[in-house]
């Protein structure tokens, strides 16, 4: 049985075989020093302040102000969300001091997710969707449910 305690964080060792010319890795040695609890609490209060700001920005006085100067309310809200996102990723998930390879995964996923969001947004505004009267549909559903006692939209599931 292997010494189980020998799990000393491999990434805290500076591995002599890696730095320098061995290709692509660059700075992937984690700093041995960890942020302090005080630092984490500080970040928490900033995040909290941003969250409160978000809730207020979405409510009436600010809503009107932003509309007044012609800025869609989504813009400040998305900026605040991005700030929170980046702070959590950088400090709580330690991306700031960890290997850039880890950030690469998150960034790749984010780029694809945002690319998908924007492309779908564009494509679906361009193609004409069947007009859909949700109120009439709901009434129809309620009627069906009243007469048959079961939901009309669910078919017979499995075999």
């Amino acid at each position: 049985m292997a010494p189980g305690g020998n799990m000393a964080q491999r990434d805290t060792h500076s591995n002599p075989g890696v730095g320098g010319p061995l290709g692509g890795h660059g700075d992937n040695v984690e700093h041995a020093s960890h942020p302090t609890a005080r630092f984490y609490v500080l970040i928490f209060f900033i995040l909290l302040a941003v969250t409160i700001a978000e809730v207020f920005v979405a409510q009436e006085p600010f809503l009107g102000i932003f509309e007044g100067i012609g800025v869609p309310i989504a813009v400040p809200l998305l900026i605040l969300a991005a700030v929170k996102f980046l702070m959590i990723a950088a400090f709580y998930m330690h991306l700031k001091q960890d290997s850039r390879a880890f950030s690469a995964f998150l960034i790749a996923g984010l780029i694809l997710a945002m690319g998908m969001l924007f492309t779908f947004g564009g494509l679906f505004t361009a193609h004409s969707r069947e007009p859909f009267d949700q109120i009439a549909w709901r009434e129809q559903l309620a009627q069906n449910a009243g007469t048959t006692g079961t939901s009309a939209t669910t078919g017979g599931g499995g075999h």
Partner: peptide, 22 residues
């Protein structure tokens, strides 16, 4: 859609088949 009555891809329930294709 098939089992719990949602209609993501069902035009008669406000869904859009193109979403599936995308």
């Amino acid at each position: 859609d098939r089992h719990f009555g949602t209609g993501f891809f069902d035009p008669t329930a406000g869904g859009d088949p193109l979403l599936w294709q995308h």
